[in-house]
Design a protein around this nucleic acid. Structure first.
Length: 1049
RNA sequence: UGGAACAUAGCUCAACCGGUGAGAGCAUCGGCCUUAUAAGCCGAAGGUUCAGGGUUCGAGUCCCUGUGUUCCAACCA
């Protein structure tokens, strides 16, 4: 029959057995349904993790959320396609290898050799692969990990080349300038991720300087900057178009001499810079545009003359604020993102008086060769000497430093390749609207806002380990974009057959220029690895070179999920690339996950020492516990405060409760040799408890199916948890004695069949959530008796709700029973009458009449002999009234408070009686109102002589009158309880027979004599006589003292 | 510095369109019950719903300001 089940908490070992079972029998592969013949497909795209970082606890969350959905859809009969992937390119990999080789920076990489370097990168990527696979395996992550896509794969890259070429042909790929954070010592631009690591708060000099208006003595623009070293590269000034500006008159010059001087600046900021002044003219920013001024330095004069460019005039742009500074911003298009844009839009010349090492060039005369930050004080000094410095002050702000060498970064224009995403804004927004975001707010919030302001995607990186940008250039200026290996071979003479699409190999391939016949060389850049991951919908299948049909049938996918930090990462790159290529979003539904924090809500990080090793939970609490925790603790999009206690709570509340219910079933099924395949029951002829739990079960199926279809994970688990609780603590507890019964009666078979049905259904219902424990249970209760059943619960189908089993009314009635029982217990507590003391009568007032079959449940639970239902509680209680605000708010408006008083003063019983007949009228502030029952909240007052409790219209009252008969019964039960306790304390086994001696109480002695046989049978006493022996103990039996001696017979 | 999300009992989370004294579970304490359970039941204590203002007859819920945490974006000139 069934395998014995222990009720210990050793879920880890059981999970390991399940893993072995899956492996030995290839269950994962068997779970994949074949496509075709009308089988619906369900496709997921995997956001690739990078295997050269260790998996951490957040990855468990990612993996288990991703895993739940395909398991569910697979059980629903769909053909699931879910290919795992690895993100393999990028700077983090290069940095890891640099560290390993003990080298530092691009020059040393070149020295080491690009080819050996990228070979190391390729190996390094797999450093933690095994750890990843073990972790994925252990949490039950079922994706195709045997044939993953790998972003460094030639096929993968070739698909990306196809994509880039397609964009090239649409004129979306262009070369421009980008202001990037740049380390002058390392000679490299830094990614935003690196920059973020190096912010420090520094004190620097900020300066107010004045620019003289061209041809006007003593009239200046006042401007402010925190980077004096950019002043030699100044090319324009910028004002805010709609802000108010002023021309002011000051009677003192900078050197303190008496002189009339005029300044232009933002009106509201004048007081921050000057004390004595007079506003002589007001204007808008736009009124200043076009005015020319004289440069602070004439370093650029020669260059501008030679190229005949016009500089040094005022422009306007909305990015300028009048919050601080002067409202007039100095523009150096080579050194700021906004400056560059404003410069471009207003045809301001590009002056870059800083070289790649961060030094000022020869043009800057006395500053030539100086590092920019060192030049700052000297530039300030010179400005001061020349009467151009209005004021210098200390300024504290966060400034980025190179995380590697601690050199201050400078923002520097570098040539960069872009995808013109800003021209696709409308299409992107349209794609975004196609997506079901969970939570919904991401769509219009975080993602929508980002897309509204989308800028061109700078995709080139001056690095080594990445997908090479497939653009070749010729000396004649012609450029060509390659879209496939075949095209590359066709256009070149030196391409090896087995060309690997990486640096340095592709750099050695030269094209023949179709324009001039010259030699074309590839541009040096590789591309942003976000492009790699965003290209995965098609690149994972080597589309369009292979699997064309397969791709088309699996695009877009139904579901993806990643953490919140991917909004501008993977989520964006997916939408961006797919929108450009296919005009739509590549996924239909997405769960955006919150991050996993430590138990104090603080981000986990190595140096804080609060990082939780994922194996900590997997080895101690198990995969199911971890899964349940992440599904159930809070909505997936909220941050988790991770703690072992929280994981344990879910385990004891759900997993072990389910397990113990199952263990209970097996224990008694084994005793009775019960085989569900040989028994049967008539679902239309069951007792109330069975009908109830089966109704609840089918309601549960319906709810979970609907919620999971709508990606409401937490909604599912919370419903399941409540059901499990009711199954264990109401159904099983109330039905225990049915399973002990001696004969295999219909009632006993019904009980077994019902519990079996519930457990069997639960294994399938919960299988996607907790795949291990459900498999253990399924193997034992289903497979061991039914060899024709599917080999694994994961090959079975998801339960289907049988609407005919749902009886809403019954469920509501059981709610009422539970409420009556609860109120009864509270009433006992209030009267200080313990449960062991039998009582005569319970009175129940409720809208619904209790059917007879429910009554024993109430009586047994409460140890009461009779139940009486009353039409109303007139004999039990009196009433008081409160306004039902939902209706009265509208009825009374501002007179509500007056109405409250009138209503509170209504006489109890009379009003209640009148209301039972129909509406009544009350007067508030001299005005009459008609009131119906619905306008009131009717409350009951405490009764007398009875112990009464009420809640939501149900009133329960227990008679507290104790007759001699009841008291005697109470004594008997109390003595039995104490004797049982004494047995236990004496260390006896439950089956041991005992001899009992009693002494010291006449009243109890009388009762003992009278009820000797009953008591003896309950406590397994052979003899029960008056007397005292060793190890005696005195007890308080409802106020009567008696001494018992218990010895083993 | 800006944008977004979140903030409810010691902890983890609920609370529908704004509607009556803000509810569960865990933990604590007291009591009860127990031939499946690390279980269950009853009760006590625990709250200025982060702070301040506004709208409303009525705000945990809507609006504004501030604080804190997190994520994202950042040369704020």
């Amino acid at each position: 029959m069934y395998k014995k089940v222990t009720t210990d908490m050793n879920f880890i070992d059981r999970e390991k057995e399940v893993l072995e079972f899956w492996k030995a029998n290839d269950i994962y592969k068997k779970s994949l349904r074949k496509e075709g013949d009308g089988t619906p497909t369900f496709t997921l795209y995997d956001g690739p993790p990078t295997a050269n970082g260790k998996p951490h606890i957040g990855h468990i969350k990612t993996r288990v959320i991703k895993d739940l959905i395909p398991r569910f859809h697979s059980m629903k009969g769909e053909a699931v396609s879910f290919k795992a992937g690895w993100d393999t390119h990028g700077l983090p990999v290069e940095l890891e290898v640099e560290k390993m080789l003990g080298i530092n920076g691009k020059p040393q990489i070149e020295e080491y050799g690009v080819e050996p370097f990228i070979k190391k990168c390729k190996e390094s990527v797999w450093t933690y692969k095994t750890q990843w696979e073990e972790m994925s395996d252990r949490v039950g992550f079922w994706a195709d990990m045997e044939h993953p896509y790998v972003t460094y794969d030639n096929n993968y890259i070739e698909s990306e080349w196809w994509a880039l070429k397609t964009m090239w042909e649409k004129d979306l790929l262009y070369k421009g300038h980008k202001i990037v954070p740049y380390c002058p010592r390392c000679g490299t631009a830094l990614s935003s991720h690196e920059v973020a690591q190096g912010y420090k708060t520094v004190k620097e000099n900020s300066v107010y300087v004045r620019f003289r208006l061209a041809g006007k003595d003593d009239t200046y623009f006042a401007a402010w900057t925190t980077t004096p070293w950019t002043l030699p590269s100044n090319a324009a000034l910028c004002v805010s178009p709609d802000a108010d500006y002023a021309k002011i008159k000051v009677n003192k010059d900078l050197d303190g001499s008496e002189k009339t001087v005029y300044y232009y600046m933002a009106l509201k900021l004048v007081p921050t810079l000057f004390e004595d002044y007079e506003v002589i003219e007001k204007m808008k920013g736009t009124d200043l545009t076009g005015i020319e001024y004289e440069p602070l330095f004439d370093y650029a004069k020669k260059m501008l003359e030679e190229t005949s460019q016009k500089a040094y005039f005022v422009v306007a742009d909305n990015y300028v604020t009048t919050e601080d500074g002067t409202g007039i911003v100095h523009i150096a298009p080579a050194f700021g993102e906004d400056d560059a844009r404003v410069g471009r839009e207003n045809k301001v010349p590009f002056i870059q008086f800083v070289d790649e090492q961060g030094h000022l060039p020869d043009e800057c005369e006395e500053f030539a060769g100086m590092f920019v930050k060192d030049a700052d004080p000297l530039i300030i000094k010179k400005l001061n000497m020349e009467g151009k410095l209005i004021r210098k002050m200390q300024f504290e702000h966060d400034y980025p430093f190179c995380w590697r060498c601690d050199t201050p970064l400078i923002y520097y224009a570098r040539s960069t390749w872009f995808i013109a995403m800003s021209t696709k804004r409308e299409e992107l927004l349209k794609s975004n609207r196609m997506i079901n975001w969970y939570p919904e707010t991401i769509r219009d919030g975080r993602m929508g806002d980002f897309l509204e302001n989308v800028i061109d995607w700078g995709i080139s990186r001056e690095r080594y380990w990445g997908t090479p940008l497939p653009v070749w250039e010729c000396g004649c200026g012609h450029r060509h974009c390659i879209g496939s290996i075949a095209e590359l071979k066709e256009m070149s003479d030196d391409c090896p057959d087995d060309i690997e699409l990486h640096k340095p190999y592709v750099d050695n391939v030269h094209l023949k220029c179709p324009k001039c016949g010259g030699v074309m060389t590839r541009v040096p850049e590789v591309i942003d690895c976000w492009f790699d991951s965003g290209a995965m919908p098609f690149a994972q299948y080597h589309y369009p070179f292979e699997n064309k049909e397969f791709f088309e049938n699996h695009y877009p996918c139904q579901f993806i999920s990643e953490a919140l930090d991917q909004t501008r990462g993977w989520f964006y790159s997916l939408i961006a690339i797919s929108t450009v290529l296919f005009g739509r979003a590549p996924f239909e539904n997405v769960i955006v996950m919150g991050l996993v924090m430590d138990e104090n809500g603080i981000k986990m990080s190595k140096h804080k020492g609060n990082v939780v090793d994922p194996w900590d939970i997997l080895n101690n609490q198990g995969a199911d516990a971890a899964r349940w925790y992440f599904y159930n603790s809070c909505q997936p999009y909220l941050p988790n405060r991770f703690s072992h206690d929280a994981v344990r709570e879910g385990q004891s509340k759900f997993i072990s409760k389910l397990w113990n219910t199952y263990a209970f079933y097996v224990l008694y099924a084994d005793i009775d040799n019960f085989d569900p395949t040989k028994a049967s029951f008539d679902r239309n002829n069951l007792c109330v408890m069975d009908r109830w739990i089966l109704s609840k079960l089918n309601t549960l199926i319906r709810t979970v199916d609907a919620k999971l279809t709508g990606y409401d994970v937490t909604g599912c688990t919370r419903t399941i948890q409540v059901f499990t609780e009711e199954l264990s603590n109401w159904y099983v507890r109330r039905c225990r004695d049915r399973f002990w019964a001696g004969e295999m009666t219909k009632d006993k078979t019904d009980a077994f069949m019902t519990l079996y049905t519930v457990l069997e259904t639960m294994t399938r219902l919960c299988a996607p959530f907790v795949p291990f424990v459900t498999e253990s249970i399924y193997q034992n209760i289903v497979r061991s008796v039914d060899t024709s059943a599917p080999e694994s619960v994961h090959l079975a189908s998801f339960p289907v709700c049988d609407e005919s089993m749902i009886d809403k009314e019954l469920e509501e009635e059981m709610d009422l029973i539970q409420m009556i029982v609860e109120l009864g217990r509270t009433a006992r507590e209030a009267a200080k009458i313990k449960n062991r003391q039998p009582l005569s009568t319970i009175y129940v007032v409720s809208e619904k009449e209790l059917a007879d079959e429910y009554k024993p449940i109430v009586l047994e639970e409460l140890n009461i002999r009779n139940i009486e239902q009353l039409k109303n509680a007139d004999s039990l209680v009196s009433y008081s009234f409160k306004p039902q605000l939902r209706t009265c708010g509208r009825k009374f408006g501002s007179k509500l408070n007056a109405a409250k008083e009138v209503i509170a003063a209504l006489p109890g019983k009379e009003t209640k009686a009148a209301l039972d007949e129909g509406p009544i009228r009350i007067t508030v502030d001299g005005e009459e109102y008609e009131m119906t029952v619905d306008d009131f909240i009717i409350e009951t007052a405490q009764p007398e002589g009875l112990s009464t409790q009420s809640d939501r219209g149900v009133i329960v009252s227990i008679s507290t009158v104790l007759t001699d008969d009841l008291i005697e019964d109470g004594f008997v039960r109390e003595m039995i309880s104490k004797l049982q306790t004494q047995r236990k304390e004496t260390g006896l086994e439950v089956v041991d027979r005992i001899n009992v001696l009693y002494s010291g109480n006449e009243k109890l002695a009388e009762i003992i004599v009278k009820r000797k046989e009953f008591i003896s049978s309950e406590v397994l006493a052979v003899t029960f006589e008056e007397g005292v022996g060793e190890n005696s103990k005195e007890w308080d039996i409802n106020g009567e003292k008696i001494t018992f001696t218990v010895t083993k017979a």
